[in-house]
């Protein structure tokens, strides 16, 4: 028991406070998501790694090719533009793994830290927050991807040029495949956001995405040795379709692009459905 007494309250009706000021907007959400992206150190690390891997591996490849030309006495009979594209995009498969991890973490990090509660109370309809995150990561990853492959092209130019292997960056055979690579890189990041939203855990999300990117094509290819018709679905694997999009083999570029889009849409669609329905 305490001797404390409670002061009596007037508790009369006071005028209710009326809130004023700006409200939710999609531009606001885009701004918010880019603040979120660029206020984490991991973003700088991962994007830098993509660029470094891209340029570094391109230099190595260019030198390796050049020594090959020397012994073979020049690069006769090889399409120069194709060779440049191969060199410029050689580091991107590593970049793909890196942005896949970044994509998963951009949402799973919100779940593991509890940030998601802040995000979803600010955006109670939820989906606009997901779309804003998708747009922002897509945009920046595309720019970083393009910077990487164009940079790789440029650092490879003097090395390959020493053997009189030259190509015009803005020639159709060069710039279009480079753009395609940057686009696929950005789509991987976005695909990974979907997986991260579905799984809601960093470890599980990264394992799932890397499984789909790295393991699935190999596993399906192995199965095709046992069951013949399985070989037909190999081109429909996410990363296989991604590379067919740029260098068509079993299907047209646009068909491969559609296959990639289906993967992305299924991932994001499922993510949106679950995000809307589940308790945060």
């Amino acid at each position: 028991m305490s001797t404390q007494t409670h002061q009596t309250q007037p508790a009369t009706a006071r005028a209710s406070f009326v809130p004023t000021g700006s409200g939710l907007s999609f531009t606001g959400l885009l701004h918010s998501e880019s603040i979120k992206l660029w206020s984490l150190r991991s973003t700088y690390w991962t994007f830098s790694l993509v660029v470094v891997a891209s340029l570094g591996i391109a230099v190595l490849m260019a030198f390796a090719m050049s020594s090959g030309f020397d012994s073979a006495g020049g690069a006769m009979g090889i399409d120069h533009a194709q060779l440049y594209v191969m060199v410029a995009t050689s580091g991107l498969s590593l970049g793909q793994l890196i942005v896949a991890v970044l994509g998963v973490l951009s949402i799973s990090g919100e779940y593991s830290s509890g940030m998601i509660k802040s995000t979803l109370t600010a955006v109670p309809n939820r989906l606009p927050a997901l779309w804003a995150k998708v747009c922002v990561l897509f945009g920046f990853t595309f720019v970083v991807g393009l910077f990487s492959v164009v940079g790789a092209f440029l650092v490879a130019t003097p090395i390959l040029g020493a053997n009189d292997v030259t190509a015009n960056l803005f020639g159709d055979g060069v710039i279009l495949p480079l753009l395609g690579n940057a686009l696929f890189l950005a789509l991987i990041a976005v695909f990974a956001i979907g997986i991260g939203t579905i799984v809601r855990s960093s470890a599980g999300g990264i394992a799932t995405v890397l499984g789909i990117i790295l393991l699935l094509p190999t596993v399906v290819a192995l199965f095709s040795l046992l069951v013949e018709w399985v070989a037909d679905i190999v081109p429909f694997m996410f990363t296989v379709a991604g590379s067919e999009m740029i260098t068509p083999n079993t299907m047209e570029s646009w068909q491969a692009f559609l296959v990639v889009l289906v993967w992305v849409v299924v991932s994001l669609g499922t993510a949106a459905l679950l995000l809307k329905r589940r308790d945060a």
């Binding site: 700006s22 606001g28 603040i35 509660k117 802040s118």
Partner: peptide, 27 residues
């Protein structure tokens, strides 16, 4: 709303957390 102390990304500064929250409503 203050639900519990852990509704913030631990890798972000307090300032940037608030800035990101504010941006959603153009505050």
């Amino acid at each position: 709303v203050l639900l519990d102390a852990k509704a913030v990304h631990t890798g972000r500064s307090a300032y940037n957390h608030l800035r990101a929250m504010a941006a959603t409503h153009s505050i």
